[in-house]
Amino acid sequence: MLHFLLTVIRRDLLLAARRKGDWLTSQFFFIMVVSMFPLGIGPEPEMLRRVAPGVMWVAALLASLLSLSRLFAEDYRDGSLEQMLLSPEPPVLLALGKALAHWLIYGIPLLLIAPVLGLQFGLPADVIGVLMLSLLIGTPVLSLLGGVGAALTLGLRGGGVLLTLLILPLYVPALIFGAGAVDSALAGLGPEANLSLLAAFAVLTLMVAPWVAASALKISIE
């Protein structure tokens, strides 16, 4: 079982490594969206520092949704998704592996880009650490919940926009706790409470989302 999970993850990593264009698009989307905000609201460092946590987190949500619409699409088109679902391995592991691979490919780079963008917004070093920690705990939630949406909207016309419409409201707790942790670190309060709640939400998502995504895949394929 573990072998199957690792195979799914390795396969997606390999595919992403061979097609770097897709991968880079999503990362640059994140950088560009965040960089648009100072142009829109003005360069006052005090205000930028205040909006930074929210801007960063909303941009992360959008960037992950952008890449999620392709999560199962390629495999669906060439038929390999159907073959994987027909295999005796449990579909839950397929959904979990896909989501984890998405997190490794798209979530981890956001984590590494975020400090640079944090410096642009004038965040102090310790707050940048909290930002990275909140993204580390929060981005798996985005991949796991998004996997449900990607499975539900598989092969539909206008799938990308539809996915956003379905999943964005479900991301609200992650956004609130994630940005809230950075906010409270900025305000000099401890971020522990928000981070704990974010971690609790992540654990709950990990327990529920792969099963839902697996049954959504079965519904979409049949």
Partner: peptide
């Protein structure tokens, strides 16, 4: 968005249930 009736029913039902789990969490957050 889904033309196939059976798929659209079941996909919608699944989304409603995920929402039902999430609504209390959203409310408290």
């Amino acid at each position: 968005a889904i033309d196939d009736r059976r798929r659209s029913d079941r996909a919608g039902a699944l989304l409603i249930l995920v929402g039902a789990i999430n609504v209390p969490i959203i409310y408290f957050s």
